[in-house]
Nucleic acid binder design. Structure first.
Lengths: 167, 167
DNA sequence: CCTCTCCGTTCCGAAACGGAACCTTGACAG
DNA sequence: CTGTCAAGGTTCCGTTTCGGAACGGAGAGG
């Protein structure tokens, strides 16, 4: 399977991954949320190749995550900012940060803290159920078929299927 | 910058991305949460090259996200399951799914629904502040330096710095 | 005129990837 | 004891992508 096919997939993860599932893209987005906007800034902070940076920015603009707008004319200069669609990726970044803070760090202290403007406290981001507001673990959630599931394509718990069809 | 350097970074996003920031890796993890465990299953469902699949699984085992254990001897056969460290990635996957459902889908119906076992409702995963339990948007969170921030390395809002040092 | 800044593009060798075949261990069938 | 099959990989080869570095171009400033 090649990557041009991924954005056509029914699976929401696959479509999201086709947009942001790339090491550099995720780091670019991290910097976007830290208010980095200009080509040179990205390049210097990330140490990314200019070639790859130009390519990733172009793709992010094409997918509507960033928008490229001129912040001056003569000479024409452009910067890149998150659209609403891009801002909606914030939970993804928070989830990555939190995993890095709690699981990846071997005795490392946190490089940054996050303070909630509205309540004033230092926070951890936690993923909760929209209905009961309880934290969500992998064991707490049951996957059910939805209306957009292509038939035959087992996005569902394949353990059930393979155990009954195998042997 | 090359990828061997990323896991040494102070930034939690960079370290997380060095582990899971790869298209195939994220799709492999999606399937792990759907209880796919065997090499052949991954290969068939994902359409991934066996070569790359073996490589990714090996890396995920090395980083402690998956564990490889024999489910039979003679012939020795192995499967891969999420460790606690791997299970802790669930919020990342939920965030990716939710973005795909709400932003990536152009009129598409959801392929799967998620039901909360403990409250029984169909849920959306939302990221909230651990202290006040309010949903977190990019505008609601203030980034502050933490004890692990290497000096000079501006992980902080660079707009402040560049505006005062530039021009 | 020369140089500087910013945003890229072009070029080249190295690394990663996709596709397909092959290997190994053992079970099972004839 | 010779196929054949299954699972879990490994090897090989040609194509893409990447990293590193140079070049381009459109103005600003001296």
């Amino acid at each position: 399977m090649r990557w041009d096919m991924l954005d056509e997939e029914a699976c929401s993860v696959a479509r999201t991954v086709s947009v942001v599932g790339d090491r550099w893209t995720l780091l670019i987005l991290r910097d976007c949320f830290l208010k980095v906007r200009r080509f040179e800034q990205f390049q210097e902070r990330l140490g990314i190749t200019r070639h790859v940076l130009a390519d990733r920015l172009k793709k992010l603009v094409k997918t509507g995550v960033l928008e490229r707008n001129a912040y001056q004319d003569r000479p024409a200069r452009y910067d890149y900012r998150l659209t609403d669609k891009g801002l909606a990726l914030y939970p993804v970044l928070l989830a990555l940060v939190h995993w890095g803070d709690t699981q990846g760090a071997e005795g490392r202290a946190r490089p940054v803290h996050y303070r909630h403007r509205t309540c004033g406290a230092l926070l951890d981001p936690i993923m909760v159920c929209s209905e009961c507001r309880e934290p969500l673990g992998a064991r707490d959630v049951l996957v059910e078929p939805g209306p957009g599931l292509p038939e035959g394509h087992g996005l569902l718990d394949p353990a059930l299927k393979s155990r009954s069809s195998a042997s």
